[in-house]
Amino acid sequence: SPEEIKAKALDLLNKKLHRANKFGQDQADIDSLQRQINRVEKFGVDLNSKLAEELGLV
């Protein structure tokens, strides 16, 4: 269901964000992850996106 997909995506992105902060990645990478999280919260996951591929939806 779209809600489950959204939850999985947010979980994955939050893990990536945590790792980025923990290991001191570029601020641009961290900002990009934050924008992705905001986009998923607002609009859900686009099944044509790279994120959908990472989640194994495509």
Rank of each mutant, 00 (worst) to 15 (best):
N48S: 11
A7L: 12
K22W: 06
A20K: 03
A28S: 11
F23K: 09
L47G: 04
I5Y: 11
G44D: 02
V58D: 08
A20V: 05
D31T: 07
G44Q: 01
I5C: 06
R39Q: 14
I5K: 03
L57C: 04
I5P: 02
K42T: 07
F23R: 09
S1Q: 07
N14V: 09
D46N: 08
L12I: 11
D11P: 00
D31Q: 09
S32A: 15
Q34N: 10
Q36E: 14
Q25H: 12
D31W: 05
L12Q: 03
D11I: 11
S49A: 03
V40M: 03
N48M: 08
S32M: 14
R39I: 14
F23L: 14
D29S: 14
R19Y: 15
K42S: 09
L12N: 03
E41S: 10
K15W: 08
I30Y: 04
G24C: 10
K50A: 13
K50W: 11
A28V: 09
A9G: 04
Q25W: 15
V45D: 01
K42N: 07
D46W: 06
A52W: 11
N48G: 12
K42M: 12
I5D: 04
Q36M: 13
E4G: 09
N21D: 04
R39S: 14
Q25G: 15
I5A: 06
E3Q: 08
E54Y: 09
F43Y: 12
E4K: 08
K15G: 07
G24P: 09
V40D: 00
D31F: 04
L33I: 15
D31P: 03
A28E: 12
G56A: 04
D26M: 08
K15I: 06
L13I: 02
N14C: 14
E3D: 13
L10C: 02
K16M: 12
R35Q: 13
L17H: 01
N38P: 00
K16T: 02
D26T: 11
K6I: 08
E4T: 10
A28Q: 13
K8D: 03
D11H: 12
A20H: 04
A28G: 12
L10Q: 02
I30C: 04
V58R: 10
N38T: 12
P2L: 13
R35W: 11
N21S: 08
L51G: 01
D26L: 08
L17M: 05
D46L: 06
K50C: 10
G56D: 05
E41W: 06
F43D: 07
R39N: 13
Q27E: 05
I37S: 01
V40T: 04
S32K: 14
Q34L: 15
N38Q: 11
N14K: 15
Q27F: 08
N38G: 07
V40I: 10
S49R: 02
R19N: 14
D11N: 12
N21L: 15
N14M: 12
L57G: 03
Q25S: 14
K8R: 13
N48D: 10
D11F: 11
A20G: 03
E54L: 09
L13H: 00
Q27S: 07
A52Q: 02
A20P: 03
S49W: 03
F23Q: 12
L51T: 02
V58H: 13
K50S: 12
K6V: 05
G44E: 01
E4W: 15
E41I: 14
N21F: 15
K6F: 03
L17G: 00
L33Q: 01
K22M: 14
L13C: 01
L33E: 01
K50H: 09
E41G: 05
K8M: 13
N48Q: 09
I30L: 07
G24A: 07
D46Q: 09
A9R: 01
A52L: 07
F43H: 10
S49C: 04
L33N: 00
N14E: 08
A7E: 09
E3F: 06
K16R: 11
A9P: 00
K22P: 02
F43N: 07
Q25M: 15
D31M: 08
Q25R: 13
G44V: 01
S1A: 07
Q36D: 08
V45L: 12
N38I: 14
H18E: 15
K22E: 13
I37M: 03
S1C: 13
L55G: 01
A52G: 04
S32E: 15
R35A: 14
R35E: 15
G44F: 02
D11G: 06
K42I: 10
L17N: 00
D26C: 10
V45G: 01
F43K: 03
S1Y: 10
N21R: 14
D26A: 14
R19C: 14
D29K: 15
D31H: 05
A9L: 06
H18W: 11
E3N: 06
L13V: 00
E41D: 04
K50P: 13
Q25P: 05
R39K: 12
E4M: 08
L47Y: 07
Q34V: 15
V45E: 01
V58K: 12
Q36T: 08
L55N: 02
K15V: 05
L57F: 11
D29N: 11
L57M: 07
F23C: 15
I5M: 11
I37A: 02
A9C: 07
E54N: 05
D46S: 09
F23A: 12
E3I: 07
L55Y: 02
G44K: 00
V40H: 00
K6H: 04
K50E: 12
L51H: 02
S32G: 07
S1R: 10
L51K: 01
A52S: 05
F43Q: 05
A28H: 12
I5L: 10
K22I: 12
L33T: 03
D31I: 10
A20N: 02
H18F: 12
N14L: 14
K22R: 10
S49T: 06
Q25A: 15
R19P: 01
G56F: 06
A28F: 08
E53V: 14
G44I: 01
L33K: 00
L17W: 04
S49L: 02
D26N: 14
Q36R: 03
F23E: 15
E53G: 07
N21Q: 15
K42R: 12
D11C: 14
V45K: 00
D29M: 15
A28C: 13
Q25T: 12
K50M: 09
N21I: 15
K8I: 12
V40A: 02
F23Y: 14
